[in-house]
Amino acid sequence: GVTLFVALYDYEARTEDDLSFHKGEKFQILNSSEGDWWEARSLTTGETGYIPSNYVAPVDS
């Protein structure tokens, strides 16, 4: 299955590639091989962008 991640904090995008999000928003991670910045798709907005990996945690299934 796909592991979903949930935002622990609000984040405001600093570049066009970043994804702004709110605490509690859920994400599907598309690429986590880039280190501290993961490519993710928000399940709330459907938008794709980079998120700071230390702002999210796995959702307990």
Score class of each variant (00 low, 15 high):
1 G>K: 15
1 G>C: 12
1 G>L: 03
1 G>A: 10
2 V>R: 13
2 V>M: 15
2 V>G: 11
2 V>W: 06
2 V>P: 02
2 V>Q: 03
2 V>I: 15
2 V>C: 13
3 T>A: 05
3 T>H: 03
3 T>L: 11
3 T>C: 09
3 T>E: 12
4 L>Y: 14
4 L>N: 13
4 L>C: 10
4 L>Q: 13
4 L>G: 13
4 L>W: 11
4 L>P: 04
4 L>I: 08
5 F>L: 04
5 F>P: 00
5 F>C: 03
5 F>W: 08
5 F>Y: 15
6 V>D: 06
6 V>S: 08
6 V>C: 03
6 V>W: 12
6 V>G: 04
6 V>E: 12
7 A>K: 00
7 A>P: 00
7 A>R: 01
7 A>L: 00
7 A>G: 04
7 A>N: 00
7 A>F: 00
8 L>H: 09
8 L>D: 11
8 L>I: 14
8 L>E: 11
8 L>S: 11
8 L>C: 07
8 L>N: 12
8 L>K: 15
9 Y>I: 14
9 Y>H: 15
10 D>E: 04
10 D>F: 02
10 D>K: 03
10 D>N: 08
10 D>P: 04
11 Y>R: 08
11 Y>S: 04
11 Y>F: 13
11 Y>L: 03
12 E>Y: 11
12 E>T: 13
12 E>K: 14
12 E>H: 15
12 E>D: 07
12 E>Q: 13
12 E>P: 11
12 E>V: 12
12 E>N: 12
13 A>D: 02
13 A>R: 06
13 A>W: 02
13 A>Q: 15
13 A>T: 08
14 R>L: 06
14 R>I: 10
14 R>Q: 04
14 R>Y: 10
14 R>K: 13
14 R>V: 11
14 R>P: 13
14 R>T: 06
15 T>I: 06
15 T>P: 03
15 T>R: 15
15 T>C: 02
16 E>F: 03
16 E>L: 12
16 E>Q: 14
16 E>D: 13
17 D>E: 14
17 D>Y: 05
17 D>H: 12
17 D>F: 05
17 D>K: 15
18 D>A: 13
18 D>E: 09
18 D>M: 13
18 D>W: 14
18 D>K: 14
19 L>D: 00
19 L>G: 00
19 L>W: 05
19 L>H: 02
20 S>D: 10
20 S>I: 01
20 S>A: 11
20 S>P: 07
20 S>Y: 02
20 S>T: 05
20 S>K: 06
21 F>A: 03
21 F>K: 00
21 F>P: 00
21 F>E: 01
21 F>N: 00
21 F>Y: 01
21 F>M: 11
21 F>C: 06
21 F>R: 00
21 F>D: 00
21 F>L: 07
22 H>E: 12
22 H>M: 07
22 H>D: 14
22 H>S: 13
22 H>W: 06
22 H>Y: 13
22 H>R: 13
23 K>E: 10
23 K>G: 04
23 K>R: 07
23 K>H: 04
24 G>H: 04
24 G>Y: 02
24 G>Q: 03
24 G>A: 06
24 G>V: 00
24 G>P: 01
24 G>N: 04
24 G>R: 03
25 E>A: 05
25 E>W: 07
25 E>Q: 11
25 E>G: 02
25 E>K: 01
25 E>F: 02
25 E>P: 01
25 E>N: 04
25 E>R: 01
25 E>T: 08
26 K>V: 04
26 K>M: 09
26 K>D: 03
26 K>E: 13
26 K>L: 04
27 F>C: 01
27 F>H: 00
27 F>D: 00
27 F>W: 01
27 F>T: 01
28 Q>P: 00
28 Q>A: 14
28 Q>N: 11
28 Q>L: 09
28 Q>I: 08
28 Q>G: 08
28 Q>S: 15
29 I>V: 14
29 I>Y: 03
29 I>L: 10
29 I>A: 06
29 I>S: 03
29 I>M: 09
29 I>T: 06
29 I>E: 00
30 L>D: 05
30 L>N: 03
30 L>I: 05
30 L>G: 06
30 L>Q: 06
31 N>K: 14
31 N>G: 06
31 N>W: 02
31 N>A: 07
32 S>P: 07
32 S>F: 06
32 S>A: 07
32 S>K: 10
32 S>Y: 02
32 S>E: 10
32 S>D: 10
33 S>R: 09
33 S>N: 06
33 S>C: 07
34 E>T: 07
34 E>S: 08
34 E>V: 10
34 E>C: 07
34 E>H: 08
34 E>N: 03
34 E>P: 08
34 E>Q: 11
34 E>A: 07
35 G>R: 11
35 G>H: 02
35 G>F: 05
35 G>N: 08
35 G>M: 11
35 G>P: 09
35 G>C: 12
35 G>K: 10
35 G>I: 12
35 G>W: 04
35 G>T: 07
36 D>P: 13
36 D>V: 07
36 D>N: 12
36 D>K: 11
36 D>C: 05
36 D>W: 07
37 W>R: 15
37 W>L: 14
37 W>D: 14
37 W>E: 05
37 W>H: 15
37 W>K: 15
37 W>P: 11
37 W>I: 13
37 W>S: 14
38 W>V: 09
38 W>F: 14
38 W>S: 08
39 E>L: 09
39 E>W: 06
39 E>I: 08
39 E>P: 06
39 E>D: 09
39 E>Y: 09
40 A>H: 00
40 A>L: 00
40 A>G: 06
40 A>K: 01
40 A>F: 02
40 A>R: 00
41 R>P: 00
41 R>A: 09
41 R>T: 14
41 R>G: 02
41 R>N: 05
41 R>S: 10
42 S>D: 04
42 S>G: 05
42 S>C: 13
42 S>E: 10
42 S>K: 09
42 S>I: 12
42 S>V: 13
42 S>R: 11
42 S>F: 02
43 L>R: 07
43 L>W: 05
43 L>Q: 14
43 L>C: 13
43 L>N: 11
43 L>A: 13
43 L>S: 11
44 T>D: 15
44 T>N: 06
44 T>E: 12
44 T>S: 13
44 T>R: 10
44 T>W: 04
44 T>K: 11
45 T>I: 02
45 T>P: 00
45 T>W: 02
45 T>Q: 06
45 T>G: 06
45 T>C: 04
45 T>M: 03
46 G>S: 09
46 G>N: 15
46 G>I: 02
46 G>F: 10
46 G>M: 06
47 E>G: 14
47 E>T: 10
47 E>V: 10
47 E>L: 10
48 T>A: 12
48 T>Q: 09
48 T>G: 08
48 T>Y: 05
48 T>I: 09
48 T>K: 14
48 T>L: 07
48 T>S: 11
48 T>V: 05
49 G>C: 01
49 G>K: 01
49 G>L: 01
49 G>F: 00
50 Y>V: 15
50 Y>C: 10
50 Y>L: 13
51 I>F: 01
51 I>P: 00
52 P>M: 09
52 P>T: 02
52 P>I: 01
52 P>Q: 11
52 P>G: 06
52 P>L: 09
52 P>V: 02
52 P>A: 05
53 S>L: 05
53 S>M: 10
53 S>V: 07
53 S>E: 08
53 S>Q: 07
53 S>C: 11
53 S>I: 06
54 N>W: 06
54 N>I: 06
54 N>R: 13
54 N>F: 05
54 N>V: 08
54 N>K: 10
55 Y>E: 01
55 Y>R: 14
55 Y>C: 11
55 Y>I: 06
55 Y>S: 15
55 Y>G: 15
55 Y>F: 08
55 Y>M: 06
55 Y>V: 08
56 V>F: 15
56 V>L: 14
56 V>Q: 00
56 V>H: 01
56 V>W: 01
57 A>L: 11
57 A>Y: 07
57 A>F: 04
57 A>K: 13
58 P>E: 15
58 P>S: 09
58 P>A: 10
58 P>D: 10
58 P>T: 05
58 P>H: 06
58 P>I: 05
59 V>R: 08
59 V>Q: 08
59 V>E: 13
59 V>K: 10
59 V>W: 14
59 V>P: 07
59 V>F: 10
59 V>H: 11
60 D>V: 07
60 D>I: 05
60 D>F: 06
60 D>L: 04
60 D>R: 03
60 D>A: 05
60 D>E: 14
61 S>M: 14
61 S>E: 15
61 S>K: 02
61 S>H: 05
61 S>I: 03
61 S>C: 09
61 S>R: 09
61 S>G: 07
61 S>A: 15
61 S>V: 02
